[in-house]
Structure formats: structure tokens, C-alpha cells
Design a protein around this nucleic acid. Sequence first.
RNA 1: GGCUCAAUAGCUCAGUCGGUAGAGUAGGGGACUCAUAAGCCCUUGGUCGUCAGUUCAAGUCUGACUUGAGCCA
Length: 544
Amino acid sequence: MNHPANKQSFTVTTPLYYVNDVPHIGHAYTTMAADTIARWQRLQHRDVLLITGTDEHGQKIERTAIAAGVDPQVHCDRIVERFDSLWSKLNIKYDRFSRTTAANHQSVVKDFFQRVWESGDIYQGTQQGWYCVACEEFKEERDLLADNHCPLHPSKQVEWRDESNYFFRLSKYQQQLEALYAERPDFILPNSRRNEVLKFVAQGLQDFSISRVNVDWGIPLPADPQQTIYVWFDALLGYMTALLEPGEEPTLDNALAQRWPINLHLIGKDILRFHAVYWPAMLMSAGLPIPDRVFAHGYFTKDGKKISKSEGNAIDPIELVDRYGAESLRYYFLKGIEFGQDGDFNETRFVEIVNADLANNLGNLVNRTLNMAKKYCQGQVPNCNAADISADNPLKVLGQKLGTQVSLAYDNLAFKEACEAIITLAHSSNKYIDDLAPWALFKQEKHAELAEVLYAALESARLAAYLLAPIVPKISTDIYRQLGLAIDFDLVGGNNLVGSDVNVSNLSASCQHHLEWGILKANDLLGEPRPIFAKLELPLVVSD
RNA sequence: GGCUCAAUAGCUCAGUCGGUAGAGUAGGGGACUCAUAAGCCCUUGGUCGUCAGUUCAAGUCUGACUUGAGCCA
């Protein structure tokens, strides 16, 4: 993730989601993770751009709209609204929402197409074969199910196509791609996904078609306006369009002037091939630098079973967030699942994890410590400073290492590891309090010792809150407020909320050293203790 | 059919260079009282998917197999 040439800026993308259907839990997962990374980078004083958006062209959209009796653009607008409202519910602070139907996107696509055209990598050819509209791809006959049904869409029949199309000379880039993977072993992560790509490329690459005839809902091909650009070619370029400043003249050069190449593409494992093979090859052809990293995360099962429409066991993210709230969901998906591996969503486990960590462990730590400070220290930070606390105080020892440790975890997208390290500090703090029994120290009038113990515990809670802020910003803000620190972790970046720009620099400046242990100042006024997280109720067990 | 990854406690997962298996959580018990019946301590849980091989020694290395997830335009 190092980006020496442009160290202060960090650009991360979610996929541009295909608008053939309303958002599902997978969309929410990728976007929560992207938002967490973006928030982390902003806290580290980087100039962050979080890009999300929608991919709106293609025959599938056209047909879905027609079936619903609306204009494709109307259909897209409706779905986009659903996405945007979910992002708002999940407290996602994106900077750019890139739509492939936006006017400026067409110009960028034209410019890019022109570059690839000039490098001689586009040619006209014929493509015959079975086409699945749902996949927007040609299929090999041997892969089809009985009666020409698509293996990925068993309810749909493939259609025979015999088209004159334009092709991209992917085959030309096999060696360059293999060199790229070899030179940059962490271009594709995790490793298991990288292996898949390596094998795929080693089999030999075939040129792929980048245009469609008889699809009106798309961007006309500059070289032949009778055809439209294949959705994937179009969609990947949406990342570039997103880099344009609002109102800027929409040229490719302008789009790439500031932030190209992108630091991180976060994707689901289903679209790895497009991002790890086609996309870098397209960029090579256009003579452009390649993004730093493509990270493919896993899929979910629900209670151990594959999620599918026919099973009717889809997880509706809107229903979940309405029932449990954004902070719980964000915490569960990032702490409860190893990022990069497949995970399971189980409601009981969800409630258990969130309650154990956020209410019992961290929540209770904050609450009990503040209550003691209120009773024993007149509601002030105990009269003690970090420097006065001995170097072998267990919480100081842990706290001084934690910032580095958690930074590393976030930089590696190891969210689970980050949470575990933070919760370990909270546990150690609870144990430390029990061991030293401040209530007894108070009765014995050992005020200096009492101050030290409570200071160490409060400061550890503060550090935990700071480090968790990218995941649970509202809880962190609440803990900070109770500690008497007026920092709102939600006023960080993101153009989808009014007034945020102003606050970005203020915020990262106001918590410049908060990664370190020992920020609370002796005798500062504390806030009123109040539970930071109300426990969730276990779902009723329904027997089938 | 080819390939990738996974399989360890009820659940979710660690397990480095091969040296007789760990954590969190859930279950059981205890002492405490500052606290959200939270926290702390102790504790019950494992033939490490199966079978072979290499080795003084295999969760770990090798091969085959089983099951699951995925990729093969």
C-alpha cells in the first residue's frame, strides 16, 4: 500500500455495482470495508478519496427496465436511490458516486478507447456462440446445462449470437501481465486468489469482445456507432471518471492528472478476473500505470447454507440495519469474518459477538471506570499524567504498542486482527481494575495509587475508542465525549454529507497524536457516564 | 474433466523452523462489588476430515481419497 510518489493521498474503490437489482448484503459488506479503510486513512492524515457507484449499461438492464415498463434511465435512477439510501443508513462516507450513465463518463470512455485504438489493440472480428444475457458473456457449449440453460443462471436459456464485434487484443499482454504479477506479489490479494489468476493467465489468454450489436443501452463505440461498448469495458473506466473534480472538463487527462493510479480496488471474488487481468491489460494498452492493489474478499453463507434466490434465504441489508443499527453490523462483518475468506452470517453469533465485545467488554470498561472517576475524582481525569506512570504498568506497556500493531493490521486489511488487538486492551484493562481494586484504594485513602489506576484505565478506553473509530465511529465519538474530548469521528471526509470538507483537516489535526497512549490530561473535566452500547436481544429461535 | 483454497473444542478461528494442541465466545463453578446480572478467576469441551508414507518424532512435510467453497473467458 506504499505509494511513495504520492504519499499523502489514498484512493480506494468499491466496485461500481450493477443496477439490475436492489442492493444485497454483499454490496453492503464491500462498502462497509471500503468505508472503514477510508476512515482509517483519513485519521492518518491522508487525503482520501472513497469511490463507489453504479454500472448501469447493458442488455440485462435494458430488458429489466422494459419488463418493468420504464425507461432504462428511470430504472437506474430508482436503483441508485436504493443504494444511496443504504449507504446513508450504514453511515458510509463516500467521496464520489460514479455512475456509468453520467455525461462526463462518455467523454472519458471515448478518450480511453481512442488510446487503445491508437495502440492497435482493437480490431473487428466475428463472434459466434451462446450468449447469456444475465452474465453478459459468451458461454462454451460444454459448460451449458440441459436445454441450453446457463450454468450460472439455470432458469435462463442462452441465446445464439453471430455478431460482428470489436475485440481487444488481450492475448498480446500475457507476458506483460505475468511480469506484473511476478514483480508485484501483492498486486492481487489474498494469495489464494492470486494463484487462481496466475493459473488462468498461464492457460493462455484469448482476445475478448468489447462491443455489442443490438444493445442500445450503452455507450456508442467511437469507431462504429452502430455498436455499443461492452459493459465491463465501460464499467472499469468508471473508476477514472470518478477522479474528475466536480465541474472539471471531462477528459481522460484531467481524470488521471491528480490521483492515478488508484491505491486499492476492493472487490468481491466474483469479479476478480476483470480487475486482475482485463483491467491491467487495458491500462497497459493505453500506456497507463497499474493500480497498486486488487483485494478480493469472500462470500457469505447464511447459517451455513449458500444464499440463493431460489432458497429464499437472502439477507436484506436494509432490514438488518433497521433492526440492529449500523454500528453493530459494521462491527460484526469486520470482526466476525476473516477479510478475504468466506464467512457465515448467523444471527445468534452476530448478537453474541457484538454484545460480548461492545457491551460487556469495552462498554462496561468505559462505564465502570467513568463511574469511579465520578465518585472518587470529582468527575475529572484523575490527577495523574501518563509520564508519571511507571514504564512497567501493564496497560501502559500494552497501550504503547497497540497503535503500531493496529495500524499494521488496518494497512493489511486485517480488520478482525485489529479488533482483536483492541479488545484485548479492553480485557486487560478490566482485569487491571479487578486486580488493583480502586474501590478499596479509595477506602484506604490511597489517592495517588487510585489516580494512577483510574488514569491508566481511562486512557486505555480512550485509545481503544480511537482505534475502533473507523469501524464504529458513533460509539467512538460517544466514548470520547464521555471522556471529555470533543471530537466527532463522523465529521471526517465524505462528500455525501454537507460541510464535511471543512472538518477533515480539523479532525485529523485535533487528534494528531491520539494513536499514542497518554493523551488524557490530568484534572480535565469528564462527561456524564452513560452506557455506550445497549445490548442486542437474541433473536427468537424458530424451529423448522 | 483441469486447477485454486479450505477441513483443528458446540460456534468462529490461531497454531512459526516438524518436538505430545491454544484463544475468543458459548456451557459449568467460585470469589468480589466500581459497573450494562456486566467484569475477574477457575473449569468442562479436541482420534487436528480419512488412509497411507517420510521421520527418533507429523495438526505441521509427501501422496491418495472424502467433503465444502470457488475459478476454467
